[in-house]
Design a protein around this nucleic acid. Structure first.
Lengths: 221, 221
DNA sequence: CTTTGTGAAACTCTTCACAGCG
DNA sequence: CGCTGTGAAGAGTTTCACAAAG
């Protein structure tokens, strides 16, 4: 799936670990806000909702940042995880498709706060073009390539209807983008070397329905 | 994490398989719309974006629904997967928090089409209460317990700000709900027997940033 | 001859349990 | 003495490769 680059500085962090680092970061930021200076693996694991052995193993992939008998320095660990995730640099993100979901994303504080800067909002509907959202003016989708190139966009969020998603995808890849977050309920086909992550709102509900049905069938309730 | 109920009719479908069934269902519905009568594991796997051996193993957990030398009957497989996921029954869903995200969810066709019926939209902000969205009137969050009980809500979607999420969660569990889909960026603490699935919009971006950074560092580009 | 269904092998991820550091 | 970091064991998942079915 993801291209592995066997490289000197690639310490080969497992995908499962990478997926949890943002969780740890969020928990650590909560602790930092409350002024906590250090935290044990036990407490941090509880705050992030994982098992403490898993947390220690995850962190061990980044380096030896804890102190035995004490725990982890909150600020230092925030820095190390941020650096590992690439959040110490500034990523320009464009959101294509400014319906309710696109608006929700544009207004979502979690993006801007962590290394991401929304550099463009685009939509194909002339009715929407010109609207001001989260301090930006919505531009026409025709401008996609221009916006990507002029503003150094490296990550594109696709929040269009399913029917437009593949076409938008092809265009942004052609413009040089290799990281895409897709909210449209379609499987995007992309060449090697392009990363696509997808979020499908209805899939999660379907998984819940499966478990809910099992609860109703089972004896243990 | 998820409670296992070792039960006669629990054929113990692996979690990884359950998570992919909605994907297959979506691909199958696409084929059905185009009138395709049967499909091979190879073709269906390609449409769903997975490896064909994995697809066959996944489907084998549900039963022997294919025909060797031919493939799978599209309509029949749609029915079997729907039944397994519990989508042949009607699930009443309430959405708490009617900001942009809540509105996006309420208007999202994918929910209504597949066994889910939005039975309530609730918000704590009096400014929003009374708005009509997707054919429903937004009710005050004070009505939460009443709505859940009167309308038989079994799944609740939390789309509130982080600060309100745990409180809403506690209340819906108290009212008898055991399946929660959480969009707020907090780890909800819940008793045993309650299923929580979470979608964090910013975590996916952070994972992309990690890979994007690796591409920039690596030699292979 | 095509395509499913599946043991077995390979791989990944999680958890245990404790040596060893501070 | 408390807590990290980690080998080793265990659980879960993916992929291979092929026998058996149609």
């Amino acid at each position: 799936m993801t291209r592995r680059i066997p490289q000197a500085r690639d310490r080969g962090i497992p995908d499962a670990t990478v997926a949890r680092l943002p969780l740890y970061l969020r928990a650590l930021n909560g602790l930092a806000e409350r002024g906590t200076p250090t935290v044990s693996s036990e407490d941090l694991a509880a705050a992030a909702g994982v098992n403490s052995a898993k947390l220690r193993k995850d962190l061990s992939h980044l380096g030896s940042y804890g102190t035995r008998g004490v725990g982890y320095d909150v600020q230092y660990l925030i820095y190390q995880i941020s650096r590992e995730l690439g959040l110490t640099q500034d990523w320009a993100v464009a959101i294509v498709g400014v319906g309710n979901l696109g608006r929700a994303l544009a207004n979502y504080g979690g993006f801007v706060s962590r290394g991401f800067r929304i550099a463009g909002l685009l939509d194909g509907d002339p009715q929407v073009v010109g609207d001001r959202i989260a301090g930006l003016t919505v531009e026409h989708a025709d401008e996609l390539e221009t916006v990507i190139k002029r503003r150094g966009v490296s990550i594109v969020v696709i929040a269009t209807p399913a029917s437009a998603a593949q076409q938008v995808c092809d265009r942004v890849i052609e413009a040089g983008v290799t990281s895409i977050l897709n909210f449209a309920p379609v499987v995007l086909s992309v060449p090697d070397g392009v990363d696509v992550r997808k979020v499908d709102l209805s899939i999660e509900l379907q998984i819940l329905a499966f478990h809910e049905q099992r609860k109703a069938d089972g004896v243990v309730m």
